[in-house]
Each structure stands twice: as C-alpha cells, then as structure tokens.
C-alpha cells in the first residue's frame, strides 16, 4: 500500500471536512440567490470526494512512504524566524529585529556556529538598514518604542 498517498488523501478529506462544517454555519441561500456558504460547501464536498479518491487509489499503487528524515531543527527554526520578526519588529524596530532573526535563523543549519552567526547578523543588518531604511525609505522605524 502507498502510505504517503493514504495519508495525503486523508489530510485532503479532513481539510475538506473542516470547510464543509464551517460552511454549514453560514447562510447557504439558493442557486438563484447564493448565500455566503453555498459555493464553499460545494467546493468542500468536492475536496472530501477527491481526498477519498486519493485514499482509495493508495491501495492500488506502488508503495511509497513519506521518505527521508524530517529536519525537525530546520522546521522549528525556519518557521520561528518570521514569527519572531512579527512579534518584535514593532517594539524593537527594524535594526534589532533584523539582527535578531539573522542571528537565530542560521542555526537551522547544522553548519552554523557562533562566529558565522555573528558575522552574518552584522552583515545582513548593515545591508538591510542601508537598502530598506535609507535607500527605499521603509516606514518601519530603526528603533522601536521598547528601546525608546
């Protein structure tokens, strides 16, 4: 059995299920005067159907698994980077926020070390401040109100 497709189909059907349930809370209307829930409900039912077809197909196709190792460290740090930036950019301002995420994000790589992180952080911060703040006049202040 193709485990990858079985899981994939189940995920698609589940997402379709979520949208279907949420659509039912909305006014469906009629084909003449469609409400906000009509089109999404149709799409969600189609999506559930496609998910089930993919799951059924998994029994007939060649085995395939999800494959290579999942880089947990990479996933965590790479996805944390934009989140950290979003959390601090208003409070700290552009310069410290860029310096911080540049320093943190390189640790998603196994080849990171303190020296490289510091160098990259300084270099990227200087580049971004020059290009985006002075060059393009980005309205984000260099230092935010947390620093004063």
């Amino acid at each position: 059995m193709n485990t990858r497709d079985f899981i994939g189909g189940a995920v698609i059907a589940a997402i379709g299920g979520f949208f279907a349930v949420e659509s039912l809370w909305l006014d469906l209307g009629t084909a003449f005067q469609m409400g906000p829930g009509y089109f999404p409900l149709v799409l969600a039912i189609v999506m559930i159907g496609l998910g089930l077809v993919i799951m059924a197909g998994a029994f007939r196709t060649a085995p395939a698994s999800i494959g290579s190792l999942v880089p947990l460290r990479g996933i965590l740090i790479v996805t944390a980077t934009p989140v950290i930036f979003g959390l601090v950019v208003r409070g700290l301002g552009l310069l410290p926020a860029v310096a911080l995420i540049a320093f943190v994000s390189i640790y998603a790589s196994r080849r990171a070390n303190l020296g490289r992180a510091a160098l990259l952080s300084v270099g990227l911060t200087a580049f971004c401040v020059l290009v985006f703040h002075y060059g393009l006049g980005l309205t984000v202040p260099l230092f935010g109100n947390w620093i004063g």
């Binding site: 790479v78 996805t79 944390a80 980077t81 934009p82 989140v83 930036f85 979003g86 959390l87 950019v89 208003r90 552009l94 860029v98 995420i101 540049a102 994000s105 390189i106 998603a108 790589s109 080849r111 990171a112 490289r116 990259l120 990227l124 971004c128 985006f132 980005l138 309205t139 984000v140």
Partner: peptide
C-alpha cells in the same frame, strides 16, 4: 546555503511586513 537561506528569510520577512505593515502576515508565512 547557510548564508543564503537566512538572507532569504530576512528579506522575506521585511518584504511581507512592508506590504501591509501587519505582523499577522508574518505568522501566515510561517
């Protein structure tokens, strides 16, 4: 690559934030 991908992430963060000035868009990226 260990220089390139942090640079991409930083540029993406600034680029996304600058379009709407919305931190929420950055959570959407993640």
């Amino acid at each position: 690559y260990f220089v390139l991908f942090p640079a991409i992430l930083v540029f993406c963060a600034i680029g996304v934030f600058s379009t709407n000035n919305s931190p929420f868009d950055l959570y959407t990226v993640a």
